[in-house]
Design a binder for these strands. Structure first.
Lengths: 104, 104
DNA sequence: CTAATATATGAACATTTGTTCATACGTCAC
DNA sequence: GTGACGTATGAACAAATGTTCATATATTAG
């Protein structure tokens, strides 16, 4: 095995990876993730907590839903959102550690 | 200590976190990161490898430099780029694992 | 010095993105 | 059924983004 270069990532993998990072790469969505990392919240709870309109929150939640970052659970007329899985929390926390730890 | 809600992240932390994710959230930059995760590369090597103009690569590398994701090392007239630290590699690989693992 | 190479930068442009506003949908109480 | 509430969605618009092209800077060879 003599210096065999590994192939670059396939385009679909690259795209999916970029999509995940992209959806995490907005301050509003980071704040939503932060709030959800402490437990599930309804749309209007998020809106109140983050001082945003419910519409704005709903639009962002759709993006987060489409990329499987969060999931929704209906209860009566309220819909509760939470982080979709442990991976998301890990990724979020890893990024947070990177930032808090001296920014570098 | 009765149900004391932890404070939300400070704005500067949120912004820094979003900036890190944002800079990772583009297919071209993901491909650059992928290439650099295998070792340092010069600008023109990256351009050749990824079939991009050197200008486009250079512009993207600046973004990655500004957010401390990659670092540069000059050697003669070439400049070699590499991932800035282990954290970046960890974050990249964690995201990759999330995507490859069924992404679900 | 000049010429050639490697990289960086600025302007321009089309595309994407995030918010607001208005409206629609779905659920519950009456 | 009606009305109120919680949420979702579409259109519109300003702001941000990524690429291309042209030009500038830096290094080396001669």
């Amino acid at each position: 095995m003599v210096d065999e270069p590994q192939p670059l990532l396939r385009d679909d993998i690259v795209g999916a990876l970029a999509d995940i990072f992209k959806v995490l790469g907005d301050p509003t969505r980071v704040r939503i993730l932060d709030a959800l990392s402490r437990g599930e919240r309804s749309v209007c709870a998020l809106a109140g907590l983050l001082r945003l309109t419910e519409s704005a929150v709903s639009h962002q939640l759709r993006l987060l839903r489409n990329t499987r970052v969060v999931r929704a659970r209906r209860e009566g007329r309220m819909i509760f959102y939470s982080l979709d899985d442990r991976h998301v929390l890990t990724l979020f926390r890893q990024g947070l550690r990177h930032v808090e730890e001296g920014g570098r």
